[in-house]
Design a protein around this nucleic acid. Structure first.
Lengths: 261, 261
DNA sequence: TGAATAGTGTCTCTCAGACAATATAAC
DNA sequence: GTTATATTGTCTGAGAGACACTATTCA
């Protein structure tokens, strides 16, 4: 029997006879701050990649938790919001949308051992800065834009730049056919605020009039509250009507991205 | 320090101190046979779920291979096509489209230990039956339709019924905006054959005239060969022109599913 | 008062789908 | 010949995008 086949034979019947594999869960948490897309990063305290920024994440608690649970736990821990106990922070975390992005398992992606990372994508409303003193004392929200340039001024650890790029692709695509843009906003919002989300994620200007008509024409996307915003725009203009997220899980018809050739 | 926190502390610094996690790669291989969608299943030779049918898969070779590589290896092994060495089989395998579907890691999904499975989705042209005598002597193509009924006559092992359902959702969605329907067909095909793929996967009748015009209007979807098929339809009709898959990776505009409300 | 913005109206172009028509090949 | 199918043509309605217009609010 060739060595390769014997290798496979043993592995198929006793995984413990094999080199160990570690499973981690990493989270790409996206939020909007001052109109710009931000991602949550933590600074690594030890090698490898000491001093580099990385996506928050950690090892799966084997035998205890599902992948989704682990992702939610990591996000709560690293934002420091779980520790504060503040009602507002808890409520904000409760509205976070979390979904699986993909799994990365190239043998050399972690120099210490073979690590398989399950990446999650989180859409969050504007969350406060992570609290100092928690596990995530070296965590902060970073603007996404400089991180994805050809010459990023800040190199991410491991293959996290690739994971971030995949996350942005997914986020941009999801805005087209799902109502997840509302996950970036408070429970009550205006159509211009919703348009700002699309413009920030797609990095493109949208036609205000056409966007407004299109959003209201999609069944179940938004529901009117009957009220209007407290103030008009910062540079003038009438008060906008306010809306809540509607029950639709898919947008029909979709809001297609301009120039998406 | 509470026990839970100490647990996390140890896990963060030495995964080997933790309960082990196994990583497997499972493949949902879909093909068309006699106009119906089929999935590749293997019969389990030992407990748990002895005698049940399951998706082909196996343990990741830690330190040796990437997830994509493992999925391709499993598919080749379990179809038995890798072992035959037949040129036609090799060529068929080379045209298979393989993409990551998702990762499943609930603690109880395998009764023996915590197993995290990375599921892959494969679109294949009509492949021959798996060869007896190989590792996959108990492998066979099964029609998908009975497996997804409310009362399936054949219960799949583990959570593989759920994985199969997710795979079908993904496949149906991907036909809309990607040219992957051509992955179910030989290199040269006709528009009616392509329509048969859509009808089988979507389980719906499409309007022949409109489908034909729509396919030809999407830039880069198909390229004319200039030739026509050898024979007309089995029940009459003129010979159809033949086409190759074009260079487009995304369909613009998309081929929307009927009634996709 | 002036500038910017919310929201609506209108027009055009594209595309999806229904239906019809013609030519070709199996039986 | 009869029937089924491939392919093209035509019509209608929905929706996307461009542009224009009015009303409202900030500075």
């Amino acid at each position: 029997m060739p060595e390769q086949d014997e290798h496979a034979f043993l592995a198929a019947y006793d995984p413990r006879a094999f080199a160990p594999v570690a499973v981690t869960v990493d989270v790409v948490a996206l939020t909007l701050r001052q109109g710009a897309l931000h991602v949550l990063l933590v600074e690594r305290g030890g090698p490898p990649f000491q001093g580099c920024w990385a996506l928050p994440g950690g090892f799966l608690r084997a035998g205890e938790e599902d992948l989704d649970t682990a992702a939610a736990r990591e996000l709560a821990e690293e934002t420091g919001l779980a520790a504060t106990g503040a009602d507002a922070a808890q409520a904000a975390l409760g509205r976070v949308h979390l979904e699986q992005l993909g799994t990365y398992g190239a043998p050399g992606r972690d120099p210490r051992m073979h690590v398989v990372s399950v990446a999650y994508l989180a859409f969050a409303p504007d969350l406060p800065d992570p609290q100092a003193g928690s596990d995530a004392s070296a965590a902060a929200w970073h603007p996404v834009d400089p991180l994805v340039r050809p010459e990023p001024p800040l190199a991410l650890a491991f293959d996290h730049a690739r994971i971030l790029a995949d996350a942005l692709d997914r986020a941009r695509a999801k805005l087209e056919y799902s109502p997840l843009a509302t996950a970036f906003l408070p429970p009550v919002f205006t159509v211009p605020e919703l348009r700002a989300v699309y413009e920030a994620v797609w990095d493109d200007k949208l036609h205000p009039g056409n966007f407004h008509r299109k959003v209201l024409s999609v069944p179940g996307f938004v529901e009117s509250t009957g009220a209007t915003s407290e103030r008009g725009g910062t540079r003038g203009g009438p008060r906008a009507r306010t809306y809540r997220a509607g029950p639709a899980r898919h947008l029909h018809p979709a809001l297609l991205r301009p120039e998406s050739a």
